[in-house]
């Protein structure tokens, strides 16, 4: 893992910016506007979830029993740890330790792989048991037990919310892979780390959404 380049990479500030700092700030502002749209997109699902949860608490309690809170906890730990390594990759870029930037990016990427592996174990289990959203639902739940009638609604929320979140993890992994390629070329250092910062913000938001999804889906009483 060599980052030694014969010619030092130098980022050229785009000509329409006054300074490198103006470019950095504009990039970040743009990314935050994007994050605001993300919050509102997931927010719509959360609002729907809260309203249905209030309308049929037994259904949501019964539905969450089908989820394995241990796998959910494991994924929470994986994502929070990956957020730490993402933040550290920026920290090491700021103090100019390029090898450590790479190590932390690799760890972050493989945490994303780990998250998706756990998620796919959960999904294949649910698909096998017929615990599917809406009309696809065909699990032989014991008739008569409380809340079972509306279980397909719970699993609609489960699959849409975790599915949208999982696709964000995949996109984040793609972006981190791109960062790894650039970090190998020695692009990031104290003078320039805007892509690290922006992808980092996106990755932390994905972590943030999972922080709410985990108790809402796995731990309803």
């Amino acid at each position: 893992m060599s980052t030694a380049n014969t010619t030092e990479y130098h980022h050229h500030t785009a000509h329409h910016f006054d300074s490198a700092d103006a470019e950095y700030r504009a990039s970040k502002l743009g990314l935050w506007v994007f994050l605001m749209t993300e919050i509102l997109m997931f927010g719509g699902l959360f609002v729907g979830y809260i309203i249905y949860h209030q309308k049929m608490p037994e259904t949501f309690a019964a539905g969450s029993k089908f989820l394995d809170w241990k796998l959910g906890s494991l994924n929470t730990v994986i994502l929070i740890f990956s957020s730490l390594t993402m933040a550290l990759s920026i920290y090491y870029a700021q103090i100019g330790k390029k090898a450590m930037v790479l190590y932390n990016l690799y760890i972050t990427f493989f945490c994303g792989v780990g998250f998706m592996v756990v998620k796919s174990i959960e999904y294949s289990h649910k698909i096998h048991d017929g615990l599917l959203p809406g009309s696809l639902f065909h699990h032989a739940a014991e008739a008569g037990s409380a809340g079972v009638a509306h279980l397909p609604i719970y699993f609609s929320f489960y699959f849409v919310m975790t599915g949208l979140h999982g696709s964000h993890v995949l996109v984040g992994m793609g972006l981190i892979a791109w960062l790894i390629v650039r970090a190998h070329k020695g692009h990031f250092g104290p003078q320039y780390y805007t892509p690290l910062e922006c992808v980092g913000l996106f990755w932390h938001l994905v972590d943030l959404i999972w922080i709410y999804l985990f108790p809402l889906l796995y731990l309803v009483g």
Binding site: R25, K28, L29, I39, M86, A87, G200, D207
Partner: peptide
């Protein structure tokens, strides 16, 4: 904790904090 430290809202220009709070307000 994620927002304040990992996403640097505590240290950054307050415009990012205002933007974030706006999205929560509209939520």
């Amino acid at each position: 904790f994620v927002l304040a430290y990992f996403m640097h809202l505590k240290y950054d220009d307050k415009v990012f904090l205002v933007g974030f709070l706006l999205s929560i307000f509209f939520l």
